[in-house]
Each structure stands twice: as structure tokens, then as C-alpha cells.
């Protein structure tokens, strides 16, 4: 459970998705998805593997093009953006990949400095170094600055991945399976970090997961996805009071077994 009350501005929608469809050949992944993310809010998208959760955030980040539907992020229609406008939008949207996706050939410090040096070339090297140190401190891994990604544990890689997105000070964070493959203690650390990011950096987030502990700890709203569409939305208690078979299975698997 959250230890703080998030400041959510329900009058300010940062992501608005309506009637979104996406197929890969004959595989219809998203079938009419509707979603609204408000400023300061964390929405958790729950669902089994292969239901289109990751596809949804890849469309939001402009990595994939939808077949139909509207995807409005910070007032901009993502599928209609040209390369320059998309680049500008991406500086405001942080994307944390499932396995961190750190650049293998760079040290941790270089991984963090890289997006900054490309997008903010006017920032001087010493100032950049300071910003890297601040972000590393925020994710609790200051000592890893000169290490290579191969030397880090799975949890550390994910924390550095989150740090790398934070360095551009995004308004929106997209987390793809942030706790997948981690032990329960590291999962709790990551959940706390997601909440800390929301509190400290005032971000709005979409968290893709099938881990209910993560969903309960980080989500202000839960949206359950099944067969490419949301079958239930609401806070944790509302969603899991439902009698849907999938929702019951999820709950039983995570908390009863």
C-alpha cells in the first residue's frame, strides 16, 4: 500500500486513448482500448502474457503505429507526429524496459549521461556529471557509476533503467513489467522506487505488470486487460471484488497460493 497520498489532478488528462486497435498479421492484439491517465496518477495495467499490455505502451511511446483509434499524449496525437515532434514528445515520456535495456558498451554513468548529452548539448560536462550523480542517488546506486551493465544484478539494471529515463525529467513514466523476474525483496524496492518517483518527480505513470503486489503497492487505478481490451477498471479493492474468472485467478495465484 502507498505510504503517501498522491496529488492527482483529475481535471488534467495527460494520456487519452480511445478505441485503439492493433494487429500483427492475423493476430488482433488490441481490440478497442480506452484509457485516461490524469496528471500525477499511476495506472497499473494488469493482464496475462500476450494480452497486448506492452504493445499498448509501445504505441503510447510512438514505437508502434496503431491500426485505428486515438492516442493523445500531452495534447499531441502520437500517430500523426513527424520525427521532430515525436522526438520532442519523447523527452517528456520516460520508458522503462522490462530488462533495463542498458547500453552494454557504456558504463552506468555513461548510460545516464548519454540521453542528456544528445538532447541537451548545451549542458556542460561537469553539470551533466552532477545530474547523473543526483539521479543515481535517487535510485540508490551511486556506487555503480563506473560499473558496466554486465556487472549489475537484475534489480540494479532496472533501477538504472529507471534512472536513465528520469535524467530527462519526464512528465510521464511508462514501466514495462518493472518487477518481472525479481525476488520479493527487490520487487518491494522497485515498488517503493516507483512511488518515490511519482512523489518526488511529480510524474504520471502507466505500469504494465502481472504482479498484484506491485499493482497494489503502486497503482492509484488498476485496469485489467483481457483479449486486447479492458474488462475492469477501478481501485484495487473495486477490481478484485469482481467475480470475473480471470480476476479471481489472478488474485488466487498471487495471494492465496
Amino acid at each position: 500500500m502507498k505510504t503517501f497520498t498522491p496529488e492527482i489532478d483529475y481535471g488534467n488528462t495527460v494520456i487519452s486513448i480511445s478505441d485503439l486497435y492493433k494487429s500483427f498479421g492475423s493476430n488482433h492484439v488490441l481490440r478497442g482500448v480506452d484509457l485516461e491517465l490524469h496528471k500525477g496518477e499511476n495506472i497499473v495495467v494488469l493482464g496475462r502474457s500476450g494480452t497486448g499490455k506492452s504493445v499498448l505502451i509501445k504505441i503510447i511511446a510512438g514505437l508502434l503505429k496503431p491500426d485505428a483509434g486515438r492516442v493523445n499524449v500531452l495534447g499531441l496525437e502520437v500517430p500523426e507526429l513527424g520525427p521532430v515532434a515525436l522526438r520532442e514528445l519523447r523527452m517528456k515520456v520516460g520508458f522503462c524496459f522490462q530488462h533495463g535495456a542498458l547500453y552494454d558498451s557504456m558504463t552506468v554513468g555513461e548510460n545516464l549521461a548519454f540521453p542528456l548529452s544528445r538532447n541537451e548539448p548545451k549542458i556542460k560536462a561537469d553539470q551533466r556529471q552532477k545530474m547523473v550523480e543526483i539521479v543515481l542517488d535517487a535510485v540508490g546506486l551511486s556506487h555503480t557509476i563506473d560499473q558496466m551493465p554486465a556487472e549489475l544484478s537484475g534489480g540494479q539494471r532496472k533501477r538504472i533503467g529507471i534512472g536513465r529515463t528520469l535524467i530527462l525529467r519526464p512528465e510521464i513514466m511508462l514501466y514495462d513489467e518493472p518487477t518481472a523476474g525479481l525476488d520479493p525483496i527487490t520487487c518491494t524496492e522497485i515498488n517503493n522506487l516507483i512511488n518515490e518517483v511519482q512523489r518526488r518527480f511529480k510524474t504520471s505513470s502507466i505500469i504494465i505488470t502481472h504482479d498484484l503486489t506491485c499493482a497494489r503497492a503502486t497503482g492509484d487505478e488498476i485496469a485489467v486487460m483481457k483479449d486486447g481490451t479492458f474488462i475492469k477498471k477501478g481501485n484495487f479493492e473495486e477490481v478484485f471484488a469482481d467475480n470475473d474468472e480471470l480476476i479471481k485467478e489472478f488474485y488466487d495465484y498471487n495471494f492465496t497460493q
Binding site: K58, A61, F95, Y103, P115, R118, N119, G161, T165
Partner: peptide, 8 residues
């Protein structure tokens, strides 16, 4: 993909 979403 990580480079792309970092506006690189």
C-alpha cells in the same frame, strides 16, 4: 528501442 524512446 531504448535509444529511440530517449529521443536519440
Amino acid at each position: 528501442d531504448a535509444m529511440e524512446v530517449s529521443a536519440i
